[in-house]
Simulated scan of single mutants.
Amino acid sequence: MTAFATPEDIAARTAAATNAAVAAGRDLGLEITEGRVLYELFSVVVHLVPSPVVARVPTVLPHTTTPESLARRQRQELDVAQWLHDQGTPVIPPSTLVPREPVQRDGFSITFWPFTDEDKSSEPDYLRNSELTADLHRALQDYPGELDFLSSAEPRFVREGLDELEGLDVVAGEDLARARREWEVLEPLVSDEDAFRRRFPGIEPQPIHGDSPPANIFASTGGPLFSDFELVTRGPVEWDLAGLGPELVAAYDRGAARNGLRALDEEVLRFVNAVGAIRVIAYLSCADQLPAMVEFMRPFIDQWRATDVYA
C-alpha cells in the first residue's frame, strides 16, 4: 500500500471524475452547464445540470478490477435495471437520453441514470426496505440474463487483499490471522457453485442484487425505488441480507411469506455474514484510496470479532 490519499488528493480525484462525466455527457449530446456532485464515497455521482441525467463514476476500486471487468459489471447492472423496469418493478432505470452502455473517458468508466427527486422528509426505513427486498427477489427470479455465481464476493480480491494487509497497521494482526483461517474455509464455497450446493443442499441460487438492497433503496418523491445494481450476481438470497441482524431478517421473512418465497436459512446467513466480514477486512487494502473507510469499517469488524470462528 502506498501513502494514504490526502483530502487534496481526494478532491482532485472527485474533480477529475466530474470533469470526465461532463465531457462524456456532452459528447453524447446532452446540454450541460455544470457537473453538480450529489454524492461521493466509492463512486462520484454527478448531476449533469440542467439535463435530467446523473452520471455515476466509480473511483475507489480493488486492485483486481480492470477497465474490461468494470465495464462488464456495469453492462450487467444496466441490463438488469432496464429489465426490471420493463417488468414494472420500481427501480431507477438507465437514462433513456443516452445509449445504454458504460462510457470510458479519461481513465474512468461512467454510466448514466435519470435524475430522480429525493424525498428527504424522513429517515431511511430499513425494516420496510428489508421486507421490500423480498419483492425484488421475486422479480429477479425470472431474469433471463447470464450472471456469475457470487461474483460480488470477489474471492480473488479478498485473497490478495488479505495478503496486502500483512504488516500494515490498518488491521490488527490477530484479526488478520483469523480472517485468513476463515477464508481458507469460505473461499471454495464462494468460488464454486457445486461446492456451495453440496454444503447447503436445497438452497437454490438465483439472481440477486449483490450489495445490500435494504441500504440501496432510493426514497424518491414517488416512492421507494431499487437502485445501485453494481454488484448484481447469482447466489443465495441470504447474501442480500448479510450483516443486518435478526430484526431486519424477520422483516425480510414477512416479505418472503407474502411473495410465496422461503424464509432465510440460518446456516446460510451465518455463511454470508462470515464472507461479508472477511470482504470488509480485505477492503481495508484499499484504504490508501479512501482513508475514511478505516473508521467506517470498524463497527463491522467489531461485530465480526464477537462471532464464533467460521469452520
Rank of each mutant, 00 (worst) to 15 (best):
79 D>W: 04
58 P>V: 06
41 L>P: 01
56 R>V: 02
55 A>E: 00
67 P>S: 09
79 D>L: 11
55 A>N: 00
78 L>T: 04
61 L>P: 00
72 R>E: 14
64 T>L: 07
78 L>K: 05
70 L>P: 01
50 P>R: 03
75 R>M: 13
61 L>E: 05
55 A>K: 00
56 R>M: 04
59 T>H: 07
48 L>G: 04
46 V>C: 04
68 E>T: 12
39 Y>H: 15
56 R>H: 03
46 V>A: 05
41 L>C: 12
65 T>Q: 10
42 F>I: 10
61 L>W: 00
53 V>D: 03
50 P>T: 01
53 V>C: 07
80 V>Q: 10
61 L>V: 02
76 Q>A: 13
61 L>D: 00
78 L>I: 14
54 V>F: 02
53 V>P: 02
75 R>C: 10
75 R>L: 13
56 R>F: 01
76 Q>V: 11
59 T>W: 05
62 P>D: 10
71 A>C: 09
45 V>S: 10
59 T>E: 10
40 E>W: 09
51 S>L: 07
68 E>F: 09
69 S>P: 08
55 A>I: 00
44 V>E: 02
44 V>W: 02
67 P>E: 06
48 L>H: 04
63 H>I: 11
51 S>Y: 02
70 L>H: 04
75 R>G: 06
72 R>H: 13
55 A>L: 01
41 L>I: 11
70 L>F: 04
78 L>P: 03
61 L>G: 00
63 H>Y: 10
64 T>K: 06
67 P>D: 06
79 D>R: 14
58 P>G: 08
64 T>Y: 06
45 V>Q: 05
72 R>D: 13
50 P>W: 00
58 P>T: 08
47 H>I: 08
60 V>M: 07
62 P>A: 12
56 R>G: 01
42 F>T: 15
40 E>R: 13
39 Y>N: 14
73 R>L: 11
62 P>S: 11
76 Q>N: 14
65 T>W: 08
44 V>K: 03
57 V>F: 03
68 E>Q: 15
67 P>V: 07
54 V>T: 09
62 P>L: 07
39 Y>F: 14
39 Y>G: 11
52 P>R: 13
51 S>H: 06
80 V>N: 05
